[in-house]
């Protein structure tokens, strides 16, 4: 069994008095793609944000590479080698594509840009075409590519992706997911993927969790969950 990179133990998060996460346990092994699927309001994004320290977990522990990061400020967590492509992408709209990518390298003091930029551009050639364009003028798919590319510029050990398929055309979704797969296969990058698009996510994932109402209700390998009738009924055949 490979090494555990990120681990959560009984993580509980509150927004004011409302409990969003009700004791989450999860494990992400080094070199694998882990995915969390679930419907709207299940707490997937909250889990993602909690790992990154905003909001902080009120109970439980989150351990990254043997280090307890539960109470760490967000920017320090970023310096440990976690990078995030947040929900809604959150690129810097008035800065150019290149400046956005450069901001991604903040944790490495903007060094070695010449080496890393070609990697991102190889993954998403569209970004190279638009490198001096203002990021706010990109299409949704290009913005998502930029958000992932920006996270990659930090040379992370663990990449957190929050709904990369949100609001994108199916063909772009395919492109994004194959890029994620390539990152994992070729660079050995560990990925934690939060998705509503269960079909795509489960096909990709080595391990998967199903979240309902702030709790994890099922877990297993991606292929296992894909075969489970209750998963199929709830997330694969119903809505899509």
């Amino acid at each position: 069994m490979s090494k555990v990179l990120l681990q959560g133990e009984g993580v509980e998060t509150y927004y004011g008095k409302i409990q969003a996460l009700k004791g989450i346990d999860f494990v992400v092994n080094e070199g694998e793609i882990a995915t969390v699927i679930g419907s709207n309001g299940a707490g997937k994004s909250t889990l993602m944000m909690t790992i990154f320290g905003t909001p902080r977990a009120r109970a439980g522990r989150i351990i990254f590479d043997g280090k307890d990061i539960t109470q760490m400020p967000t920017h320090e967590i970023a310096h440990l080698g976690l990078a995030q492509s947040p929900e809604g992408r959150r690129i810097f709209p008035r800065m150019s594509v290149f400046e956005n990518l450069q901001m991604g390298a903040t944790v490495r003091n903007l060094e070695n840009l010449e080496e890393d930029l070609p990697k991102v551009f190889k993954l998403f050639p569209r970004l190279e075409e638009r490198r001096n364009q203002r990021a706010g003028t990109l299409s949704g798919g290009e913005q998502q590519m930029l958000a992932i590319g920006r996270a990659m510029m930090a040379k992370p050990r663990l990449l957190l992706l929050d709904e990369p398929s949100l609001g994108l055309a199916p063909i772009i979704v395919k492109l994004i997911f194959s890029a994620i797969k390539a990152l994992n296969a070729e660079e050995g990058l560990t990925v934690l993927l939060v998705e509503q698009n269960a079909n795509h996510a489960l096909k990709l994932a080595h391990s998967a969790y199903v979240m309902v109402n702030g709790k994890i209700t099922m877990s297993g390998t991606g292929a296992e969950l894909l075969r489970r009738p209750e998963v199929r009924a709830a997330y694969l055949e119903g809505g899509h």
């Binding site: 920017h75 970023a78 990078a83 903040t106 920006r150």
Partner: peptide, 24 residues
């Protein structure tokens, strides 16, 4: 300089800044 770039990024999106490792 990085600090000036961080100011502009802060103007654009504070949450993204923090997750990129900028001490806001």
């Amino acid at each position: 300089l990085p600090i000036g770039r961080a100011w502009e990024a802060l103007r654009e999106d504070e949450i993204a800044c923090r997750s990129l490792g900028i001490n806001t």
